[in-house]
Design a protein around this nucleic acid. Structure first.
Lengths: 214, 214
DNA sequence: CTGTCACTACTGCAACGTGCAGCAGAGGCT
DNA sequence: AGCCTCTGCTGCACGTTGCAGTAGTGACAG
């Protein structure tokens, strides 16, 4: 409602705008939808997902309508022509660099400051998180097959997207297993330095080859 | 200098604390070091890297000394015994879930709202960013081999870390090539729906198999 | 010998984004 | 009648980022 505010249009704004371009959504639906697929490419908090559509309205990129469900109202957001044009302009801007936050890897990097159990547990926790995502993506593909997905005309996009995710998950799972075996071979977590095994691996990596894809 | 403030100890605080556990660093050195390897697991802004060590001092986890280089001073931070203990306690806490922000994938998900050129350019930009990281990691491994790395006793950790990165980069690069070929085959970006090709891929993914690792 | 440029070494500030607490109606189960 | 889950949000504190600004240092060009 406040106008005259600066309010930058962020990538998250365009993410919501792109969802609105598919169909009108309520604020709550947007938060739910963002959990289903968006979060694997652009993870944003529920809180933000409630704020963004309001910003879009302020910018003239969307409109709100109060719809009543029983004794209370909910906000339905619809994209405007101006919003569609803004979306079109966005597609020709520079894509931001990817960004990977992996606390388990951070703990691995400093594993010499803790016990072997600590680093192995970090790997277990990473594996559990990845498995959960992995299963969710496989299920998502199932929903396209059994007709349960609301946008079947977008299957070709989802398939490419899911291929990326599945490949990444498989790569990470294979690496976790590899890391476990290596760590089991260590006599201790710290000050191992350049053992014969480590040197072999270092040379391999420096030649841009991986012990997992020899 | 302000005391009595709450100031939560975040993962980023522990990341800096872990660096300080290796040796004392100046604020500037911390920002540089974080660019070298930390950023691939825990990307944080230069600004934060200047703030965190001050917070650690407030918490009693580190001490500062003014050191003069020429006509100006710089701050050298050293970990305290209390800091080491805090670091030890952190290793037994739950590891946070990984988080992947990939704007290029977001653009792919909504590629039906733009042109084929737009989505292909997003893939090119992703590839360029990944190649830059890829080369940096290969070089980092080189620095362990030629003796240029300051912590050779940590090679065994760096090797596991780098294996993860190289595998991920290779997986993404292969996927980008795959995606290009698929997109070239599309008659248009939108409303393709369930073509025979798409259905084959969807079934494959729903069986947790990837077209890239058949 | 003076100007410019890159590097070192930070700080202040506004704005972005997250997590959590809180509020409230609806429907179902015990 | 009480409780729990789902729907459907808002306010607030605080973590984090990007950018602008400040300032000394050393190297090289003209």
């Amino acid at each position: 409602m406040v106008k005259g505010m600066s309010a930058r249009v962020t990538t998250s704004s365009y993410a919501v705008l792109a969802l609105l371009d598919l169909k009108p959504w309520t604020g709550y639906e947007l938060t739910q939808q963002a959990q289903r697929s968006l979060r694997y490419a652009w993870p944003k908090s529920e809180r933000l997902l409630y704020s963004e559509p309001k910003k879009l309205v302020d910018l003239g990129y969307a409109t709100v309508e109060q719809e009543d469900s029983g004794n209370r109202t909910r906000n339905v957001f619809t994209i405007t022509e101006e919003g569609r044009q803004a979306l079109g302009r966005w597609t020709s801007t520079r894509t931001q660099s990817p960004r990977f936050e992996i606390e388990a890897l951070l703990r691995l990097l400093f594993a010499d400051q803790g016990s072997r159990e600590d680093v192995l547990r970090a790997l277990d926790e990473l594996e559990a998180d990845i498995d959960a995502h992995h299963r969710a993506i496989v299920d998502l593909m199932g929903s396209y097959l059994d007709g349960g997905h609301p946008f079947p005309q977008r299957t070709h996009l989802s398939v490419l997207f899911a291929t990326f995710q599945i490949d990444m998950f498989k790569t990470m799972e294979r690496w976790i297993e590899f890391a476990r075996v290596e760590i089991d071979d260590w006599p201790t977590t710290h000050d191992l330095g350049m053992t014969p095994r480590t040197e072999i691996l270092t040379r391999l990596l420096n030649q841009d080859r991986s012990p997992l894809n020899p």
